[in-house]
């Protein structure tokens, strides 16, 4: 028995990999959803967007790429559903060039579902290099950074953009963050121009943004797949994030089980050495 317990401290990693694979794949294949009780911070973000008057201009920054797509794409789609259903107008840009097509695909997909018109209800600006410099200059005048949209259409020929000169005309920025661009949005967008910000981040980046939320420098933080599922729940839609809750729950429990098993083996081994 003791020998068996000692072995628990050194389980072959291939066994762990197989367990992780099964714990993820089986729940994904079932496509079952789970009821989630939305976290207070997600509810706060939802209520802020709800409170925006019709036709308000909101901005989305795509600061992620395909690696973070499972967590942030459902968040983006939920936000677009929320915005278009409330007749908010959306400007999209981004600081991660390889992630921008993800943003554009979601924008066109959801805008199409609500019969929204390009240039009037939504605009896709694209990418400019220089993160902090771009954020600062947008606060002065959008035209200093984007004279045209992604398709080379002059922005002054787009009815929506004729009404927007700088952050004063923007009621909210949703920054979808997989890295450190969220810090730049807070440090320059909020601190210098009082831009209202909600950050949607990967679970691994979420702790980095909590201090901004507690200091009221951002309205709220929507964290990880759970945050996206909470947002979908508040909107009453079943998206990818809601479907992801069961696999995520199971894999968390599997990891906890491995941690416990590893500790049993470790403690037995340590005692045996004594």
């Amino acid at each position: 028995m003791i020998e068996l317990l000692k072995k628990l401290a050194g389980i072959d990693r291939r066994f762990i990999y197989a367990a992780v694979f099964l714990a993820t794949a089986i729940p994904i294949l079932t496509k079952a959803t789970m009821k989630v009780e939305p976290l207070p911070e997600v509810r706060k973000a939802y209520e802020y967007i709800e409170s925006l008057p019709e036709s308000s201009v909101v901005m989305v920054s795509i600061d992620y790429d395909a690696a973070s797509m499972p967590e942030l794409q459902p968040m983006l789609e939920a936000f677009l559903h929320h915005s278009f259903s409330k007749n908010l107008r959306v400007i999209m840009l981004g600081h991660w060039p390889l992630g921008l097509p993800l943003g554009q695909q979601a924008l066109e997909k959801v805008a199409g579902q609500y019969n929204k018109e390009y240039g009037v209800d939504y605009v896709f600006l694209g990418y400019r290099p220089g993160v902090a410099a771009v954020i600062i200059n947008l606060g002065k005048d959008f035209r200093t950074v984007f004279s045209s949209d992604y398709a080379y259409t002059p922005i002054d020929s787009l009815p929506l953009m004729r009404e927007v000169s700088n952050y004063k005309n923007v009621k909210l920025l949703l920054g979808l963050e997989a890295g450190a661009v969220g810090d730049a949005w807070v440090q320059y967008g909020y601190a210098r121009y009082n831009l209202p910000i909600i950050l949607g981040s990967t679970a691994v980046s979420t702790p980095d943004y909590y201090p901004y939320m507690q200091a009221n420098q951002v309205i709220s933080v929507i964290g990880g797949l759970r945050g996206a599922a909470d947002y979908e729940t508040l909107l009453g839609i079943t998206g990818e994030a809601s479907i992801g809750m069961l696999p995520q729950s199971v894999i968390h429990l599997v990891i906890i089980a491995f941690i416990i098993i590893g500790n049993i083996g470790f403690l037995v081994l340590r005692r045996a050495k004594k």
Partner: peptide, 18 residues
Amino acid sequence: QATMFAILSFFIASAAYR
């Protein structure tokens, strides 16, 4: 890219165990 990132879950589980 998604595959590269998904592989992390295996390493994270193994690293958490160790």
